[in-house]
Amino acid sequence: MEAVNAVKAPALEVHDLTVAFDRKPVLWNIDLEIPQGKLVGIIGPNGAGKSTLIKSIMGLLPLSSGYCKLFDESIDKVRHRISYVPQRESVDWDFPVSVLDVVMMGRYGKLGLLKRPRQADIDVAMDCLKKVGMESFANRQIAQLSGGQQQRTFLARALAQQADIYFMDEPFAGVDAATEKAIISLLRTMTANNKTVIVVHHDLQSVSTYFDWVILLNTRLVAYGPTERIFTQEKLQETYGGKLTLLSDVGDLIRRENFPNRE
């Protein structure tokens, strides 16, 4: 794996991270460090563990080994600085809430238990809706939204958290080209303000124009670092072409035999 110079004051540090589903490891020993203020793409084929990586960092999945640190702290100490855009399909869009209701959820972490949202919170939410061009949809029932509008609603909710690092799971899925451009320029202004944005991305065409850094992933870490250095034909070949069959065979073996993947 390509060695990278140690990153100073990283926004994210992942150390020896292994994650298993039903005992079969789907991420093997991931080590990486991401500096602050970068727009970072996580690239890899289907089943590479891109969403799993994000979810593990967010503490949504149990880790088999390793740890993740954000701003040199464990996640639970800095949750208020971290924002998350889950995959659009992960929720029921027939749920009886309005667009504004969903965006207001981004404020709940700051509000704390039992507190009612104040006008200031509503203002923040409306401002975030405006940033994604959805202010006229604020009172719309979410079942009436198109895929792209759902995605922008989720984005607005994440913005409403006013965090320092953003994890986005396929924010461009189902979004039309014009909206994608608008979202990217929004993310650009965020990174210009020293926010870190980490995005699971599918479209290889746009990688080099969109991202400062890339993480190439295929159940193991292939490479990570500045796009112009890492996003090469050779590395892509390694990410997409050479599936390590032996690795997944061993994973299957661990599951079949009910073998603990750590002693």
Binding site: Y84, M105, Y108, L113
Partner: peptide
């Protein structure tokens, strides 16, 4: 009434509620 907003969020999008740091 007291936990209306927390329960609603939890039922709508559990992972996001965890990510926000809700208990």
């Amino acid at each position: 009434l007291l936990f209306f907003k927390e329960f609603t969020l939890m039922v709508f999008d559990r992972n996001y509620a965890v990510a926000l740091g809700l208990p």
